[in-house]
Design a protein around this nucleic acid. Structure first.
Length: 843
RNA sequence: GCCGAGGUGGCGGAAUGGUAUACGCGAUAGUCUCAAAAACUAUUAGUCGCAAGGCUGUGAGGGUUCGACUCCCUCCCUCGGCACCA
């Protein structure tokens, strides 16, 4: 027999599958659809082990569903816009587009070697105008509905490059490109009003879709809905009002000071003359601090007194107004009331600056103990020193009562706050979707901000651009492109030179797979109605607060645009794990611990790598690549290859025990794939192989079913062996009417695998069915325990297990059990039918 | 600090209230071989014992139960995410 040499069979079948369109999906089918999706790869240049891991999972699920008779869609595309392409361009002098397309071609080839059942006729490439035209269309729709707007946002700002920097581009508070000190500055940018969807984006319990708990809770925390109160205080020196937000209105009698964020609009107005210098200095220093710097400082609070006071309406108390950068301008009103007796953070601040501390929540009614230490601070308990509200339990009784009272008096009103901010989509970068906006400015009168009319889409990204960093968006250098006519008045105007965040590209791509060539519409609603939502979406946990939130937002917007009828685009999402390098750390070139799939495929073949990755552990495992581990599954494949020799020429009826293990394995593999437990499905096949190897010869039926079950995991070797079997059958049929396959067809047994002439591939055969009548055993093992410890195992005829007395009698006959029963009195006997009998004894 | 997921042999892991360590890797011994590799066979949680067999054992400690890796409480550790949100 010939040897198992993967390189001789894998490319051959990959080619045949493609030629015969084995994996093409007919989207006009309206029944039994199953849409599998894996997060699209970024065009980084090479497929890495992580891609193999996740796409093998998707592939197994896709192949399995096809075999069950579903119409399966398993597409893929490329996330092709973004910073790395631009950086590579600057570094290597290649145009971002050329770099991207070159990488894409390479990765497409690598996907072939993996042997996936991806239908490449349904695809998208983010940097293709055919695709990003629809990003622009969505932008215009958002604009129409006031969901896109030009607004200000605090950002990292490099004064010398004149650009906004992402957090990761700020190094020690300095610009990564020029080294200038980065400032915090309000910068004009385009924003998507995701906050108006905050409530809809919240996950309920039970959840509206089967998504991971960590994602649901993470998103809910990120959205950060809180229901509190906005309370107004009068400034003592003039007529202005100071508004604060709090979720603890019941502590209002404990307010001893106020704190404003350095950026608060009232700061300039409030600060008294002789403190101006100190305050200005404080603000100057805090504004220079980047996010990272603030974090690096830890929780040590700093602040400065303005010299101003305001009045607490509830008791007429005059309290000092401070400024501190632990108060965030972007949350609530940008001002907080200081209640050091009931808030740990306020306590810390008050103690540092010697501010008054009053107890308003005590352990018991009338508790007048001093708040001297952090541990004395109470957030819940009984209200004290709170006039008519003293003695009420908080939060249960007091909060609502004080809330109502404050509202009645007109001092405060209920307010819902979110932590979620609107989504800034502006990037001062070249390699992204141009924002379809034209600025028509004076002197010619000027129409202001004018959206590009839909008929003029796409606004194509110009190729000839100086994308080297010059301190302004690269698109500004393409003067021919920038200078245009105003669509409204026809006068001279300039294009928007910012591009969109690449998260826009990935927020809706799975809709486009359904209708990738459509030039008139974003996608056909009718097709989407049939094929969406996704049945399963495999992705990384790192996208919890980015992609996975934005894509939900887009889907909800699509619903409001009448494109779809659902809020959630994926019925189920799972978070895959990570394959670390052999040294246990993340694979990276700098560490030199990268395991290259191409090399591994050369050594072992794609089937072995697929199988190894799936056998490692559960789908969400984070574990390191073990170079020896591949040997194990490679060995498994070689043993399967060797089964050909053991195949009996003349088929006989399967024995009871052979039938039992076959049906047991069918059941186990089927259930495990459904539950995405590939490791144990493979283990079950290994166990069956061990059984088959022990036999003298194997029957065609069990051989066939084995291949049929293994096919989703190892598509190449199973196709090869299937075709070899088929051709041997055909040659047999011509000479001698009886054949291996014909036998089992005449009397359809387990597996029901029938070779159809129009479905030549093993991957088109129907999935074997398990028959429970073969699973029943004549004899059952029953564990005999004494006081919960296993003492013996009883083998009993199946028809007896219902009778507790008989089982008990037999168990008492056990010599091993008897040793532990002599001289003891049996207090109780617990019998679990067919499983265990436990004697509870005392000495 | 908060939220989420975990902690089981030398290693990856299996078992979701009923025989802990399936399956695989590695290791040890043997068969084959001039030899090695490959393949095949056997053993492989710790411990006491010649053996039969016993005892201990799923991060630590407690609890519930006839019975706990599994459920509950307290604590420790690891991983992922968020983090001065008033």
């Amino acid at each position: 027999m010939n040897k198992y040499i993967p390189s001789q069979i894998e490319p051959k079948w990959q080619e045949k599958w493609k030629e015969n369109g084995v994996y093409l999906t007919d989207l006009s089918e309206t029944k039994n659809k199953y849409y599998v999706l894996v997060e699209l790869p970024y065009t980084s240049g090479d497929l890495h082990m992580g891609h193999w891991f996740t796409f093998t999972m998707g592939d197994i699920l896709a192949r399995f569903r096809v075999r069950l008779g579903f119409n399966v869609l398993f597409p893929n595309g490329f996330d092709a816009f973004g910073l790395p392409a631009e950086n590579a361009a600057i570094k290597k002098g290649i145009h971002p587009r050329d770099w991207t397309y070159k990488n894409m071609e390479r990765m497409r080839g690598q996907f072939e070697t993996l042997g996936t059942s991806i239908d490449w006729t349904k695809t998208m490439v983010a940097c293709d105008p055919k695709y990003y035209k629809w990003n622009q269309w969505i932008f215009l729709k958002m604009l129409e509905r006031d969901l896109a707007y030009r607004g200000k946002l605090m950002s990292n700002w490099c004064p010398s490059c004149q650009t906004v920097l992402a957090n990761e581009n700020v190094e020690n508070g300095k610009c990564w490109r020029c080294g200038s000190e980065v400032e915090q500055k309000e910068v004009d940018q385009w924003l998507f009003r995701i906050t108006s969807y905050a409530d809809r984006l919240l996950w309920s319990d039970p959840p509206q879709a089967d998504w991971p708990k960590s994602l649901r809770e993470g998103q809910n925390d990120w959205i950060g809905k809180s229901e509190g109160m906005e309370i107004e205080f009068s400034v003592a020196q003039d007529t202005s009002k100071l508004k604060v937000y709090t979720v603890f209105p019941e502590t209002i009698f404990g307010v001893t000071y106020m704190v404003l964020a350095p950026e608060h609009s009232l700061v300039k107005k409030l600060v008294v003359k002789d403190r101006e210098k100190e305050v200005e200095e404080y603000i100057r220093i805090s504004q220079k601090k980047s996010e990272l710097e603030r974090k690096a400082e830890g929780r040590e609070k700093t602040g400065v007194f303005t010299g101003a006071y305001c009045i607490n309406s509830v008791n007429g108390k005059k309290v000092p107004i401070w400024i501190a950068d632990y108060v965030l301008a972007g949350y609530g009103t940008g001002a907080v009331m200081g209640v050091p007796g009931s808030d740990h953070r306020d306590f810390e601040f008050a103690r540092k600056y010697g501010l008054e501390i009053i107890r308003v929540i005590g352990k018991s009614a009338g508790d007048q103990s001093k708040v001297l230490l952090m541990d004395d601070v109470l957030e819940e308990g009984i209200l004290v020193n709170s006039e008519q509200f003293s003695g009420l339990k908080t939060p249960e009784e007091a909060r609502e009562k004080i809330k109502d009272w404050l509202e009645e008096k007109g001092w405060g009103k209920s307010q819902v706050q979110y932590h979620l901010h609107d989504w800034s989509i502006s990037r001062q970068r070249y390699w992204g979707t141009p924002i379809p906006i034209i600025y028509c400015d004076p002197p010619a009168g000027g129409c202001g901000i004018v959206p590009v009319p839909e008929k003029d889409l796409p606004v194509e990204l110009p190729y000839e651009v100086d994308y080297a960093p010059k301190g302004k968006p690269p698109l500004a250098t393409a003067e021919d492109w920038v200078n245009t006519e105003c669509p409204k008045c026809g006068g001279p105007a300039k294009r928007e030179v910012e591009t969109m965040d690449t998260f826009v590209d990935s927020a809706w791509y799975f809709f486009r797979y359904l209708d990738p060539e459509n030039d008139a519409k974003i996608f056909d609603k009718k097709i989407a109605k049939v094929w969406m939502p996704l049945d399963i979406y495999i992705g990384g946990p790192e996208h919890t607060l980015g992609h996975a939130l934005y894509s939900r937002f887009f889907t909800m917007v699509f619903k409001d645009l009448g494109l779809v009828s659902f809020d959630e685009y994926a019925k189920k999402r799972i978070h895959h794990g990570t394959i670390l390098g052999p040294d246990g750390s993340r694979m990276s070139k700098s560490r030199g611990n990268v395991v290259n799939p191409d090399t591994e495929v050369k050594n072992y073949g794609a089937d072995a790598i697929r199988l190894y990755l799936m056998f490692l552990g559960p789908f969400d495992i984070v574990t390191s690549w073990n170079p020896d581990g591949v040997n194990g599954v490679y060995h498994f494949l070689q043993r399967i290859w060797g089964l050909q020799e053991k195949l009996k020429v003349k088929s006989e009826k399967l024995k009871v025990e052979d039938l039992r293990i076959m049906h047991k394995t069918i059941k186990k593999v089927t259930e495990d794939i459904e539950q995405i437990k590939f490791n144990t499905a493979i283990a079950a096949l290994m166990e069956w192989l061990n059984h088959l190897s022990r036999k003298d010869g194997i029957e065609a039926e069990e051989y066939k079913v084995f291949l049929l079950l293994l096919a989703p995991f190892a598509p190449h070797i199973t196709e090869e062996l299937w075709q070899v079997l088929k051709s041997s059958v055909v040659s047999r049929q011509s000479s001698d009417k009886k054949s291996l396959i014909a036998d089992s067809e005449a009397t359809p047994k387990a597996g029901e695998a029938i070779l159809k002439t129009d479905s030549w591939s093993i991957h088109q055969q129907s999935w074997p069915k398990s028959d429970s009548k073969f699973l029943e055993e004549e004899e059952v093992s029953i564990v005999v325990q004494v006081n919960g410890k296993v003492r013996d195992i009883l083998v009993i005829q199946k028809d007896v297990i219902r009778d507790k007395e008989v089982v008990e009698m037999k168990a008492l006959e056990s010599k091993k059990a008897q040793k532990f029963l002599v001289g003891k009195s049996v207090k109780k006997v617990v019998y679990v039918q067919g499983k265990i009998i436990n004697f509870v004894v005392s000495s």
